[in-house]
């Protein structure tokens, strides 16, 4: 099926009620369609890396991977697999013409220095003020692992989140305040979920706009989320 791009803030919330929630693959396609042409993008690890499959050559987007590369290509297949060439999730990938390699200090200078336009990260929780929690559940039996998440969260000009809106136990992951340990303060711009797309207000004051919904109405979302939702 075809997913139309979400509309931008100010032109009204789009409710997609004739369908169910987005699959993760469909969500990846929606995010890919919203990434502006010609920008430098980091897709983190895990689910957001699927966005790369939906980027078109015409978009002219250059992918950055934290382990020291710009111009990352698709996942390597068969004979293309080279253990010296992986993405941040350690998955073998390929290089595109114009690729560049650099060491780790340079790679993270690109983030902190404000050179990276967009990053897309997963999340345990996002707060209505843009706080992000995605590295540690805080449980005593959990082994914490932050990787590059904190550097990306405060470094990229726009931080997009790709996640399910509800945890497996049904609790919302878009929350009034994060209860999990924070990755970054007030750093999230947009939250892309299976049930809807949300924009955090520029003032980071608990002001969340609903850009689009999938398989659920805005009023139903209001009843399931403990966050104040404004229509776009």
């Amino acid at each position: 099926m075809t997913i139309t791009n979400t509309t931008t803030a100010g032109s009204g919330t789009v409710e997609h009620l004739d369908r169910g929630p987005l699959s993760m693959g469909e969500l990846a396609a929606v995010i890919a369609g919203d990434i502006p042409a010609g920008v430098y993008v980091n897709l983190g690890i895990g689910q957001p890396t699927r966005i790369a499959d939906h980027l078109s050559a015409e978009q002219g987007i250059v992918l950055h991977t934290e382990n020291g590369m710009l111009g990352m290509g698709p996942a390597a297949q068969g004979d293309e697999i080279d253990p010296d060439l992986t993405n941040a999730g350690k998955v073998p990938v390929t290089e595109l013409p114009g690729a560049a390699y650099f060491h780790h200090a340079d790679s993270f200078a690109m983030m902190r220095g404000g050179h990276l336009d967009v990053c897309v990260l997963g999340a345990y929780q996002v707060a209505a003020n843009g706080d992000l929690a995605n590295w540690h559940t805080g449980r005593s039996d959990d082994i914490p692992a932050v990787g590059g998440a904190m550097d990306l969260a405060i470094g990229a000009k726009s931080v997009f989140i790709m996640m399910t809106l509800f945890a497996k136990d049904g609790s919302p992951k878009l929350v009034p305040g994060c209860t999990y340990p924070l990755t970054g303060v007030g750093c999230v711009s947009r939250v892309y979920t299976d049930h809807g797309v949300f924009e955090v207000g520029p003032d980071r004051r608990q002001n969340v706009s609903v850009i689009a919904t999938y398989g659920i109405s805005v009023s139903a979302l209001r009843s399931r989320l403990d966050v104040r939702l404004a229509e776009a």
Binding site: H103, A105, P144, V146
Partner: peptide, 21 residues
């Protein structure tokens, strides 16, 4: 780690790189 046989200090990846730099 779970057996308490090794200590762990987690550092953000960019800080790890820049602190060594």
């Amino acid at each position: 780690y779970r057996a308490g046989k090794v200590e762990l200090e987690v550092v953000p990846q960019g800080n790890l790189a820049e602190r060594m730099r």
